[in-house]
Structures are given as structure tokens and as C-alpha cells.
């Protein structure tokens, strides 16, 4: 495990377009929608960069047992909400990969393997990766996903990785790129801009 990095999951299934990971984590450590993560592929030659678009809390036998009890004690409920590691599944969309020091804004050559560790992408790396906005095209091309919400969440994460003074100009630049990509669909673009400004 890289020093100082918090493991948020291990890959359970994957494809070129993304990966799914599972883990038991206490509630404060849960990743957030629209945050970036990374998992190793090609035996360490590349790091696939994923954008978390879904987080689901899985049940387990003990949680199910407590749920059907007439009245679980407040302490057991608090234990399961705040102390006991929650079995979670996170789903990430591949938005690029890093090979050596270079970022590539396309689908990775290979997916991560089963049980590859998934780490959050550190803020400094989020900033470097999102400096170029080609990753937006990969998000917009994802099918059967709430793409606009994912895109807005990703841009907010990218903006927050920057100093406060740079955030607005970054979002304006990202909005311009969205306008270029969605020029054919002004209604959708309008909705996207509204979401970004809320």
C-alpha cells in the first residue's frame, strides 16, 4: 500500500470502461460521488484513473438480522452506522490512465485485475490530471449513466483541488469545453451550466 494513502476498495469486476470495487469501511472513510480514484493495471505499468459514479452500501447477514429485529438497541444501531466497517461497493468510470509521469485521456490498454487496490487520487494529482479537459469527453460518452450529474460532480472535485482563487476560472474554462462538446444540444448544455452554478 503506498504510504499515507487510504485504501478504499479492491477491484471485484472490471472492464476497459471502468471497474467495481468492494470493501468494508467505517462511515467517515466512505469515498464521495464524483471523486477520482486509481487502481493499478498492467502489473504496475499503468494506473487507471476512475471517476466514482456510484457508491452502494451492501447489506450483510448481521445488518439484515438487526434490521428485522423488533427494535435494535440504539447502541447497536450507532455501532453499525458509525463504528462498524460498512460493506460498500463503489463503481468507477475509467476517464484516463497514467503511464510513468504522463496522463492519457483515453480508455486504458488493460483494466485493473481482480483484487487490485483502489486508492483515492490525491488532490495534487487530481489537479494535474484535470488540468487538461479531455477527460470530459469520456464522461459524456458513457451510456446508461446519469452523465450530467457525474460530470458536474467531477468538475466540482477538480475545482476544489485548486486554490480558491483559481476555482472560478477553472470552472469557466470547463464550461467552455462543455459548450464545445455539447454545442449540438443547447437544452442539455443549459441544464449542465445551471447544475454547475447551483
Amino acid at each position: 500500500m503506498p504510504e499515507g494513502r487510504r485504501l478504499i476498495g479492491r477491484v471485484t469486476r472490471c472492464s476497459i470502461r471502468g471497474f467495481v470495487g468492494g470493501m468494508r469501511l467505517p462511515e467517515p472513510d466512505l469515498p464521495t460521488f464524483g471523486s477520482f480514484c486509481t487502481a493499478e493495471a498492467q502489473r504496475g505499468q499503468s494506473q487507471v484513473i476512475g471517476l466514482i459514479y456510484d457508491i452502494s452500501v451492501e447489506d450483510d447477514e448481521l445488518a439484515r438480522q438487526l434490521a428485522i429485529a423488533e427494535a435494535p438497541s440504539p447502541e447497536a444501531r450507532a455501532d453499525n452506522q458509525f463504528t462498524r466497517p460498512v460493506p460498500i461497493e463503489i463503481q468507477a468510470l475509467a476517464v484516463g490512465y497514467r503511464s510513468g509521469d504522463a496522463y492519457h485521456y483515453s480508455l486504458p490498454p488493460q483494466p485493473p485485475l481482480t483484487l487490485a487496490d483502489i486508492f483515492p487520487l490525491p488532490a495534487a494529482e487530481v489537479r494535474r490530471f484535470t488540468e487538461r479537459l479531455e477527460f470530459l469527453a469520456l464522461i459524456l460518452s458513457a451510456s446508461q449513466l446519469p452523465v450530467d450529474d457525474i460530470l458536474v460532480a467531477a468538475l466540482r472535485t477538480a475545482a476544489e483541488s485548486r486554490p480558491a482563487a483559481e476555482r472560478r476560472s477553472y470552472l469557466v474554462r470547463a464550461g467552455q469545453e462543455c459548450a464545445r462538446l455539447l454545442g449540438h444540444d443547447l437544452t442539455r448544455l443549459d441544464g449542465l451550466v445551471r447544475l454547475l452554478t447551483v
Binding site: A78, D79, R84
Partner: peptide, 14 residues
């Protein structure tokens, strides 16, 4: 180990 305080409503210490 787990240490809970019944009646407190607080999460236990583990």
C-alpha cells in the same frame, strides 16, 4: 473487543 454503554445511545468503542 467491543465496549458499549447500554442506555447511552452512543456508538461503542472497538
Amino acid at each position: 473487543s467491543l465496549h458499549l454503554i447500554h442506555g447511552s445511545g452512543e456508538p461503542p468503542q472497538v
